[in-house]
Nucleic acid binder design. Structure first.
Lengths: 169, 169
DNA sequence: GCTGAAATCACACATTA
DNA sequence: TAATGTGTGATTTCAGC
């Protein structure tokens, strides 16, 4: 039986704030959304427990660390059997350079986001993990030259009245 | 004159921990990396001040909120003048559905990651923001059917001795 | 790296709608 | 009855030494 959690205006405002900064004291957050500090804390705890907030993390700027290069890698497999696909996915999941890996519709099978220090590191990665892996029929790289937008946050409409959300527990 | 910050083993271990959970008390983190609590706090403060940690945020699970659909959108512009490109980028940056927007190499100009509630919402978005925008020559959608890996964190090698990092301030 | 003051968190209970 | 607000002790942060 699916449970639901109602996100009211206050919840959505809190989510908008916490997605920008989750180190703000609950007292300050409480003032901003006009509720008391314990209530604020309780609501945040509920958002975490329901899984609506899935994690609280420190974001690291990859470019500040010299991981200056991002690459999009499109891969087609030779053998598309379930077994071979699972094998490919498992191997990609283990690679530290692979930030994201999706099985996609269209004329190739996988779309990967790869973070590396420089072009040479990317070349080494491709030779080792992709072209040298045996089951890759074709691959192609695209290089983002400029990031026009990168949003980690979901913008909630703070005006709308209520929002029903199905939750896991 | 560029400044540098040396990331030692302790820093990297802290970064690995904080990328998973930044709500852990510094006391507990200190125990895990075998330093005192005030030292731990000072190191974390430095990591924030140097911009290595760029933000501390709550992550929201889009699927838990019914934003069950992700789409990759490839767009080619008709007019590629600097002015028109800036205009397109500015418009995409304003769209809440657009999570990421990159100017890429290859046979189309832009690669977009779009988060929507369902296929109908995606259709509405494309009609309004892309095909109805005037300067789009061609576009194509790809739909991720499975996410095999999604990493928000950069894995630091905790064994390596030191790592020199250029910082902004 | 240690200590202590100030702030924050988090609980029990009364209150309200 | 379920959710909010008030008051208070336990933790945590953070500066000075």
């Amino acid at each position: 039986m699916p449970k639901f959690h109602t996100l009211d205006k206050v919840d959505r405002k809190l989510l908008n704030l916490l997605q920008k900064d989750n180190q703000t004291p609950t007292r300050m957050l409480a003032d901003k959304v006009h509720i008391s500090q314990p209530t604020c804390l309780r609501r945040i705890r509920d958002l975490r427990e329901t899984g609506i907030i899935s994690a609280d993390v420190a974001m690291i700027d990859p470019f500040a660390l010299g991981y200056g290069m991002l690459a999009f890698l499109e891969v087609s497999l030779t053998n598309q059997s379930d077994e071979h696909m699972q094998d490919f996915e498992a191997r990609m999941a283990k690679e530290a350079e692979v930030m994201q890996c999706y099985f996609v519709s269209g004329d190739y099978d996988y779309f990967l986001v790869v973070h590396v220090i420089d072009m040479d590191a990317y070349y080494q990665f491709v030779r080792r993990a992709i072209s040298g892996s045996g089951n890759v029929r074709h691959f192609q790289s695209r290089f983002p030259m400029k990031c026009a937008k990168f949003a980690t946050r979901i913008a909630f409409d703070e005006k709308a009245a209520e929002l029903q959300v199905r939750i896991a527990k």
